[in-house]
Design a protein around this nucleic acid. Structure first.
Lengths: 220, 220
DNA sequence: TTAATTTTTTAGATTTGACTAAATTTATTT
DNA sequence: AAATAAATTTAGTCAAATCTAAAAAATTAA
């Protein structure tokens, strides 16, 4: 089944909103999509007919199984393009989202699967969000980025959101790998750099950019 | 200025049609776009208001300077994506057009210029058609592909439409370069392979695929 | 537990791009 | 040059996606 750009934007946005609350309201969705509540109601009726969501008037809505599948396919496209833009075309961090918003609506499955292969099946987009695989499977364990960890809290590196050669080189040099235990010693407000302890007595300073790319699973 | 997918398809198609004849007719365009003549008339009025073409009722139409610029931007996007799909994602020859038809409507200039750089500023798409540069300049000299040259006609190689490593390796091995003089000796119907003479007495056989990629400027 | 407020839905309009059917203009024949 | 045929345009509809304004339902507060 193929969906219009508008339908896809609704589906995608519902998916993101319902992660926080269980159910999504008309006003919320209208606010997020910068449209009017009346337009949302119209679209909800349409998506209900297409059997993508649960919806009873005045009761809010939630994607069903099929709707979730569609959402994951869109998110997969979005995040793969973001990765491509950052890694191959050298777009910066903050530019990729806007461009990917357009590219995500080109919904040729073969294109996306080949793009995935070309990129080396990346696990996370440049913002650290997980990329669903070709079957719509997405890494569930919510990962926290290093800057969100409080001071002096021992934790373990569980991944890197940006797989570029540049970042891997830097991490290698600082001996930060998956499984590395570390702890933040100091946060500098000026440039948001962090002083961290990696080994028993190895202290090093890392930039905000680098810290943003270091993912932590458990504050273990 | 931004144009809808529909407007872009009209502009692009007018551009291609008017190369053959000077002016494009309503029926021609309707046929090409698989739509109805009445729809064409509607759109022509719209594009005239937007000052992209010359149009007097019953007189046919032709893109003006601005319209041509828009067309070249679309064609640039299309051909760069075709090149990307073939060269990087390993799509085959015949699959690229359809996918590029969708990608071409993502009209972010920075995206396209960065894609161009990433690809190494290719001159031709996988079908041998020239790719307009960032300023809309397009190689004017019409190039003919080798299979279109008659038997026993001396000619000079002027380019290769597909810049992939694979094809360059093969051409290098056969000592076929830009400027090489050659002449077709025999055409085999079975597989459309060609027997060609390159040096004074060097005879070699090349496949249809290879021949399709060899561009000839003048039957000199 | 009514009244007031907020949220959501319905009703009716608008725009874009398409369509059919009819009218008009241009081209072709006799 | 008039008649016929072909091409093009006009007029009126339609569907998708949006909007505003008004009505209805749900929530909150007095």
């Amino acid at each position: 089944m193929n969906y219009s750009v508008s339908e896809e934007n609704y589906i995608k946005t519902i998916f993101h909103l319902q992660k926080k609350e269980g159910t999504v309201t008309t006003n919320e969705l209208a606010g997020e999509l910068k449209t009017r509540p009346a337009s949302v109601t119209d679209m909800m009726k349409k998506l209900k007919v297409k059997k993508l969501l649960h919806y009873q008037p005045y009761q809010g809505f939630r994607l069903n199984n099929d709707g979730t599948k569609v959402a994951l396919a869109i998110i997969r496209r979005h995040r793969l393009w973001e990765y491509f833009l950052a890694e191959k075309l050298k777009f910066t961090w903050d530019e990729v989202h806007e461009v990917a918003e357009e590219l995500e609506h080109v919904s040729n499955k073969k294109l996306i699967d080949k793009l995935d292969a070309f990129l080396g099946y990346p696990k996370n987009d440049p913002h650290g969000d997980p990329i669903p695989d070709a079957n719509g499977k997405i890494e569930s364990g919510k990962k926290i980025r290093l800057p969100e960890i409080p001071l002096h809290t021992p934790c373990i590196v569980s991944g890197v959101s940006n797989q570029s050669g540049e970042i891997l080189e830097l991490l290698e040099h600082k001996k930060i790998r998956i499984g590395t235990r570390l702890e933040i010693r100091k946060k500098f407000d000026f440039d948001e750099s962090l002083e961290i302890k990696t080994g028993k007595q190895t202290i090093t300073t890392i930039s905000r950019q680098l810290a943003e790319n270091i993912l932590i699973t458990h504050e273990a």
